[in-house]
Amino acid sequence: MERIRNCFEKLSSRGEKPLIVYATACDPDCRRSLDVFKLILEYADMVEVGMPFSDPLADGPTIQKAHERALAAGANTRKVLELVEKLREFAPQKPIILMGYYNPIFVYGEERFIRDSASAGVDGFIVPDLPPEEGEDFSRKVKSMKLSPVFLAAPTSTDERVKKIGEVTGEFIYYVSVTGITGERDSLAFKEVEKDIQRIKRISGKRTVVGFGISKPEHIKQMYNSPDGFVVGSAVVRRVENWDIEELKELLKGLKAATKS
């Protein structure tokens, strides 16, 4: 929780917003994935470590394939946590958020999962198939360990729901920019997104970052004002899939530059 708040505050004092970068753990395998995340951490202010799952139903084809590659490479919850441990050592101050579907967490055991994640150095959790109705318990347990549960809000979330999301979430809300799944998009409804994020922030009183579809620096520039941070996933994962490290570096550089007003 501390690391996340410090991250927002420190950047804000410099007139910057966090660049939050997602990649799937153990893609294409656990060893090379470590290098990918180390590269990401040179540019990103926060990382999201995706826990591979056999049925990632909120994800588009790019990230689905990443999950398949990771599972084929033998990924499991323990290996994801080992990866986090190494990243924590590499970047002691940067927030690490685990993003994973609920079943592997449920099977591992919520409490044990939160405890082991905490000692690996995790700061927060995004569980896309755990809405507030089902996630209240999880949220309480995460908060009691001084970590941050991160709940999603969507364009379809009613005001009443946003209020509830604000209550269960930790340091911030993750606003899904589109009704849809993860994946690169040429363009987004920038005006509507900015407006809706203002609504979310007003009702919830929480910091709100935006993700889904953001794939180039221009996207960040086009809706810079309302969000408190920007999440990029599929655009990064596609470079990992092609193993185009130079291009990935260029992308990250450009994205980070765009988050500095």
Partner: peptide
């Protein structure tokens, strides 16, 4: 247990 987008 679904993404927030579907809850409404």
């Amino acid at each position: 247990y679904v993404p927030e987008t579907l809850m409404a």
